[in-house]
Design a protein around this nucleic acid. Structure first.
Length: 867
DNA sequence: GTTGTCACG
DNA sequence: ACGTACGTGACAACC
């Protein structure tokens, strides 16, 4: 077989890597995420492909940035030109230090250079192109293969001529340019034929072969409008084809000797150190010195499950016994994944995969090996790596088995490393961090481990991970399994009662409006209020008139209908979300509601709750409180107890900012909002009235959120000038808070992240964005996250302490819910006083701050009474 | 699938 | 001057 020449499209891959990797920043504030991702991929490619020659091409034409290319990255931020432009020189510098040839030629793009090699490189080389640019598929031929990175940079699809034909209805790679000629490409400014998309283009080219042939045969093409479009855009089509054709005559050195792989230069190591790429140098050194790469990147191995990994089924007891006895000998961590099925209280394992010695060992339902697995799972000396440990704990609890020795949960680790991501499924994490992955199996888990461990160390997250989050997963499993008991009869009666009221309001609304309409449709309501009734338009949304509460409240009085709608809104919200919505989530077997606590969702470290969300059960209004009456102690218990922190976030702020006045307020046990009012309005504490206190309370909230005069004005319905005055007065008095806010934003700007008291990090790439809005948002986030996040850390510690205290005291009472600053427990009459005292103490001692942490206990026969 | 609205901390 | 409070999840309507 011919030696391989790896030609890499550096420009497109760095674009891709920018999105695929964490927003890394060095201590000096240099963005390195994309370069790091690129290097990771490179090292993997070198190991897998083992090329003899290597070159990396970069664009050097007027179009350096092609952010449009990322149109498909919905919801994700596009890189700014300045952030991107930092990545290219950095990558070039690094590649040069590694003695890797970097090619860029004035006036040409990377794909032109690559195209030139594809056509003109000496025939003794097999060429492998690596790119994120689909256009380059046109270069495929018998000796040219293309590794195309689909999403991110790790999901690679390997194309040869056959694979291309399979994806493109049998077309040849050269016909890609004909396709483009018809369909165009907005990201490349290729017009194509307007109105002809990928589908039509593919059909036409399949039938006629080339753009020219299509144009010759317009008469035979069916569809009048299509005919016209083609007829009117002949020139555009031909021009587009020309534009889509990669230029293959760039003056580059075709002497392969120049590209042969060499050892890295002495500059590589210090540079990598400067960039804080801790283990990259070593990995490159091993590879460049010849490695034993496990994957053959071409052929079956990419993008297919379990490509090269052998799966052995453990079917019989004998096989299980033998395998787990062997596993027993191992000292190191073993990766396993579990698939669970069924509903509470009967969740069980349906399949388990264990990675060992390069193979995956699998247990399925009906296997005789399960008991040996459970034995292994319960052995705390057998260290295990897994993902979604909470589900595993739940399954074990249902099966009356024990899970111990789980020392890593990749989901949680990945969340701590990048808490802003949207998914931490093993598949997603594997695709993000592993160049060659298996779509998320136990082998990927094992492969991820060293990377994740390194990152946890680099980011100083280990303590948080092992002492807080991992144990918490177990506690959350217990809480979910416990669930909470609803009073079904009460639920039904309130549901009916409210339905009657809603119907009455709908009839009234129809009378008042003079026509029938859907009160729940903001669109219909907008038309009615602002067009038919001619009420003033106060606010607009992206798509039409706003009809939210603040708008309706301002309109109240100008038409009787408004009050009806407000009342209707309130009732239907409660009715559909908390009454009708709750009923199907009552577990028929346990007759309890089992929420799901999400541990890897929020960017700040808080938990979230879903199916149902029990963290937003109404409490603020009288009618809302009735819904809390539905939640009652279950069989065997007598009380619901709630214990909530008083002003945690402001206490955290007082501690972190070390602000003199705020510390004083809490140390003297003052009403903190009243004190703020006294300071802001410049009156003695005794003269603070309720309106002043309300406003000061809003100021305090605003501070925690990263205040703006506009936001405060809106909240209090006062003028912007007045709000600005409050803020000015606040900062004049609370100078420590002001300094804290400035310092925090500066820290974020310099380090690229903010952290909580317990080291939880959040990276804020936008903190240096040139866009004012994005930057401002990042600045407010920088202020809020350490406060909200520290409070979240504190209650997580408190939960673990409470759990420990309850178990030490051997009581049956248990934690059911966490609502950010509140714990809800189910308590036995005989344990009531003891539990109240234990819980209060555990919560108040969860962290030691410069001010006391106080928690208030209350109990009742339902959740509404615990306030 | 996205948008508007609104429930909670 | 820029346009704005921080963090969530669920529902109904509309596309």
């Amino acid at each position: 077989m011919a030696d391989k020449f790896l030609v890499i499209d550096g420009s497109s891959l760095i674009h891709r890597a920018f999105f695929a990797l964490p927003p890394l920043m060095t201590k000096q504030g240099v963005h390195t995420g994309a370069v790091y991702g690129f290097c990771n991929m490179l090292v993997k490619l070198l190991g897998d492909v083992k090329p003899k020659w290597l070159a990396v091409a970069f664009d050097k034409s007027r179009k350096t940035f092609r952010t449009e290319m990322f149109a498909d990255y919905k919801g994700q931020r596009k890189p700014t030109p300045s952030e991107l432009s930092e990545q290219f020189p950095l990558a070039r510098r690094l590649l040069e230090a590694m003695n890797i040839t970097v090619l860029e030629t004035d006036g040409y793009e990377a794909d032109d250079i690559i195209g030139t090699f594809a056509v003109h490189a000496p025939q003794n080389a097999e060429i492998i192109i690596v790119t994120g640019d689909k256009d380059e598929l046109q270069l495929l031929d018998d000796r040219v293969k293309v590794y195309f990175t689909k999403r991110g940079i790790s999901d690679i699809k390997a194309y040869d001529v056959a694979a291309f034909a399979a994806d493109y209805e049998g077309l040849s790679p050269k016909q890609l340019i004909d396709l483009k000629g018809l369909m165009g490409d907005s990201s490349d400014n290729i017009p194509g034929v307007p109105g002809v998309g990928p589908k039509t283009a593919l059909k036409l080219i399949c039938e006629y072969g080339t753009v020219e042939k299509v144009l010759e045969n317009i008469a035979q093409i069916s569809g009048k409008s299509l005919k016209e479009k083609l007829e009117n855009n002949k020139d555009a089509a031909l021009l587009s084809k020309k534009l889509a054709t990669i230029f293959t005559e760039v003056p580059v050195d075709l002497d392969l000797d120049k590209y042969e792989l060499k050892a890295m230069s002495d500059e590589a190591r210090p540079l990598m150190q400067e960039l804080e790429f801790r283990n990259l140098h070593e990995r490159f050194q091993t590879i460049l010195g010849g490695s034993d790469g496990t994957f053959d990147l071409f052929g079956e191995s990419i993008g297919q499950e379990n490509a090269n990994i052998e799966i052995a089924l453990l079917e019989t007891a004998e096989q299980g016994k033998e395998f787990f006895a062997l596993l027993q000998q191992k000292q190191e961590k073993v990766a396993f994944t579990a698939v669970c099925g069924g509903e509470l209280p009967k969740i069980h394992f349906t399949a388990v995969e264990i990675f060992n010695d390069g193979k995956i060992y699998k247990l399925q339902e009906g296997s005789g090996a399960w008991n040996f697995f459970y034995e292994w799972l319960s052995d705390y000396k057998q260290l295990k790596v897994t993902c979604d440990s909470k589900e595993i704990y739940k399954a074990c609890m249902c099966l009356n088995k024990k899970a111990d020795g789980i020392v890593d949960d990749i989901d949680i680790a990945a969340y701590l490393i990048e808490p802003g991501r949207s998914s931490y499924s093993l598949k997603a994490v594997a695709e993000r961090y592993l160049a060659a992955n298996n779509g998320g199996n136990a082998a990927d888990l094992q492969a991820l481990l060293p990377l994740i461990e390194q990152k946890l160390r680099d980011y100083e997250l280990y303590k948080l991970y092992t002492e807080m989050e991992l144990p918490l997963a177990y506690l959350l499993a217990k809480m979910e399994l416990a669930g909470i008991k609803p009073d079904v009869k009460l639920l039904e009666s309130i549901t009916k009662e409210m339905a009657v009221q809603i119907t009455a309001l709908e009839i009234l609304a129809e009378e008042q409006a003079g026509e029938k309409f859907n009160l729940k449709s903001p669109k219909q309501l907008g038309v009615l209020l602002f067009e038919k009734l001619g009420l003033p338009i106060i606010k607009k949304t992206k798509t039409g008139y706003s009809t939210d509460v603040s708008v309706l409240e301002q309109l109240e009085g100008s038409h009787p209908l408004i009050t009806t709608i407000l009342e209707h809104r309130k009732l239907t919200k409660l009715h559909s979300t908390y009454l009708e919505g709750l009923r199907p989530l009552i577990n028929p077997a346990t007759e309890r509601i089992h929420t799901h606590f999400q541990q890897t969702v929020t960017a700040t470290g808080r938990l979230s709750s879903t199916d149902p969300n029990l963290q937003n059960i109404p409490v603020r209004t009288e009618i809302g409180k009735r819904i809390r009456e539905i939640f009652i102690p279950g069989t065997g218990y007598d009380w619901l107890m709630s214990c909530d922190y008083s002003q945690v976030e402001l206490r955290v702020l007082a501690h972190m900012a070390q602000d003199k006045l705020l510390l004083e307020s809490f140390l003297n046990g003052q009403d903190v909002h009243a004190r703020t009012a006294a300071e802001v309005f410049g009156v003695p504490l005794e003269q603070v009235d309720s309106m002043m206190r309300t406003r000061a309370k809003a100021v305090n909230f605003g501070i925690v959120y990263g205040i703006s005069d506009f936001g405060l004005a809106k909240q209090l319905d006062i003028s912007r000038g007045e709000a600005a005055e409050y803020i000015k007065n606040y900062f004049a008095r609370y100078t420590g808070v002001k300094k804290y806010m400035d310092d925090t934003v500066n820290h974020a700007r310099e380090q690229g992240y903010v952290a909580t008291m317990f080291g939880r990090r959040r990276y804020l790439p936008d903190i240096r964005h040139s866009n004012f809005n994005l930057r401002s948002f990042a600045e407010r986030t920088a202020i809020n996250t350490p406060i909200q996040g520290t409070a979240a850390d504190i209650i997580k510690i408190a939960m673990l302490k409470v759990e420990q205290a309850l178990s030490d005291a051997k009581v049956k009472s248990r934690i059911l819910l966490q609502v950010h600053d509140e714990l809800v427990l189910e308590v036995m009459e005989t344990e009531k006083e003891l539990v109240a005292q234990l819980v209060k103490k555990a919560m108040e001692s969860a962290a030691s701050l410069s001010v006391p942490l106080t928690a208030d206990v209350a109990w009742g026969k339902n959740w509404a009474q615990t306030k």
